[in-house]
Amino acid sequence: MNTFFFSLKIHQDAFQAYYTGQARRVSVVAENGKRLELPAHVFRPFVNHQGVTGRFKVTIDDQYRLIQLERV
């Protein structure tokens, strides 16, 4: 398994495209410089009135499948 950390700030208006399904993936750059593409729906538990903000930890398996996403 691999663990990556990244910070994210998506304003609520911008996240609306993800929330409604118009955009399916969120592209982020992890703190180690690797680019990750994550399914947008995994961020829904973290949406608030500002959108999605914070520092996150993502764990993926050796086949690059998402195991866990959490705000840290």
Rank of each mutant, 00 (worst) to 15 (best):
M1S: 11
N2W: 05
N2L: 05
N2Y: 14
T3E: 15
T3D: 11
T3W: 07
T3R: 15
T3K: 15
F4E: 08
F5R: 15
F6H: 06
L8Q: 07
I10H: 02
I10A: 05
H11A: 15
H11Y: 11
Q12A: 12
D13S: 12
A14L: 14
F15T: 01
F15R: 01
Q16K: 14
Y18W: 08
Y18V: 00
G21P: 10
G21E: 09
Q22A: 15
Q22M: 15
A23V: 12
R24H: 10
R24K: 14
R25I: 13
R25E: 15
V26P: 01
V26G: 02
V26Q: 07
V26T: 04
S27Q: 13
S27M: 14
S27L: 15
V28N: 00
V28T: 03
V28A: 00
E31W: 01
N32V: 05
N32T: 12
N32I: 03
N32R: 07
G33C: 06
G33A: 10
K34S: 10
R35L: 11
R35N: 13
L36A: 07
E37K: 10
E37A: 14
L38H: 11
P39Q: 13
A40P: 11
A40L: 09
A40K: 09
H41W: 13
H41D: 12
V42T: 05
V42C: 08
F43E: 01
R44H: 11
R44E: 11
P45S: 01
P45E: 02
P45K: 05
P45W: 03
F46D: 01
F46H: 02
V47F: 02
N48S: 09
H49N: 06
G51K: 07
V52S: 03
T53P: 00
G54E: 02
R55G: 08
F56P: 00
K57A: 13
V58F: 03
T59G: 01
T59E: 14
T59L: 06
D61L: 01
D61P: 00
D61N: 15
D62I: 00
D62R: 07
D62L: 02
D62K: 08
Q63V: 04
Y64T: 03
Y64S: 12
R65H: 12
L66W: 05
L66S: 04
I67T: 10
I67N: 11
Q68V: 01
Q68Y: 04
Q68E: 14
L69G: 02
E70Y: 02
E70M: 07
R71C: 06
V72H: 09
V72G: 10
